[in-house]
């Protein structure tokens, strides 16, 4: 028992060192692309466009909601979206087609962690740009500034991170199709439709018909935008149930990811490398 714990500790220390090294190198790399990241941050303005549409519509008072709710929700959705951006299918496909995946596969660590650390590094680089855009939003939109309760400030980053993990795993599973099909990135568009409509990105799920809302909560999508945004905007009092669902989805998707990886890597033909 003691030996197992020592081994586990050693493995954890090794993994921490690897992840730190990956994150450091990827963070340095992202700094090389800071202008591109600033543009990506600006391009994530969809929730703010939706805010404009919703606050001007007659639905602004739907279900007892009011202007303040929409403003807080969509600004929160903007923040959540900024830190849950995932492009692993595209990177994985490029690496697969151009043979860059081969050296990664020959190292005693799953390439999963390279892509994961690359996304985290991009998010860290994005922080100052997001703050800058938020200042402009707070100055430009009437009654848009609010300070969330202390527990929300603590819990929201966790909810956003878990949302990112769910989205990353979902995309990773689809990325594994690259092992079977050269153009798996087209599948990303397939994911985009449910993501747009069931995640709460274009409209809060509270505005949906009851049956559609209930159905949506059986999918992972509401936990990607809706839940973290509602939490950050102060509309969820007891988030425990939502966190549990996030963890359950991470567990389920992790199993699928692992199986998809094992199955896919057998088909790898190392083309171009």
């Amino acid at each position: 028992m003691y030996i197992s714990l020592v081994k586990l500790k050693r493995k954890l220390v090794k993994f921490t060192n690897i992840f730190r090294a990956l994150l450091t190198s990827q963070y340095s790399l992202m700094h090389e692309y800071r202008a591109e990241i600033a543009l990506w941050a600006i391009s994530g303005l969809l929730p703010l466009i939706m805010l404009g549409i919703w606050t001007q519509s007659s639905f602004a008072n739907f279900n007892g909601s009011n202007y303040n709710f929409f403003v807080k929700y969509f600004i929160s959705a903007f923040i959540v979206r900024q830190f849950t951006a995932v492009w692993v299918i595209i990177s994985f496909e490029e690496d697969n087609l151009e043979g860059r995946l081969s050296p990664f596969l020959l190292q005693p660590i799953s390439p999963f962690w390279r892509y994961f650390s690359s996304h985290i590094a991009e998010q860290l680089t994005r922080i100052p740009f997001v703050f800058f855009i938020l200042i402009i939003i707070f100055l430009g939109i009437q009654d848009s500034f609010w300070i969330p309760p202390f527990h929300t400030i603590l819990l929201s980053p966790i909810a956003i991170f878990l949302a990112f993990v769910i989205r990353f795993l979902l995309h990773w599973i689809f990325a594994m199709c690259c092992f079977f099909n050269d153009k798996a990135s087209s599948l990303e568009r397939l994911l985009l439709i449910p993501y747009l409509f069931l995640s709460g990105l274009v409209a809060p799920l509270e505005t949906y018909p009851e049956i559609l809302r209930t159905a949506a909560y059986f999918t992972p999508f509401p936990y990607l935008i809706s839940f973290p945004s509602l939490l950050l905007s102060g509309s969820i009092v007891n988030p425990l149930n939502y966190f549990m669902h996030q963890l359950i989805w991470i567990f389920i998707l992790s199993i699928f990811s692992f199986c998809a990886w094992r199955l896919g890597v057998r088909h790898y033909s190392a083309m171009g490398a």
Binding site: I18, A21, L22, T24, S25, Q107
Partner: peptide, 13 residues
């Protein structure tokens, strides 16, 4: 990035 960055990652791996 300079090669030293890749070397550090490989050393950790």
């Amino acid at each position: 990035l300079p090669p030293i960055e890749t070397l550090k990652v490989n050393a950790a791996v």
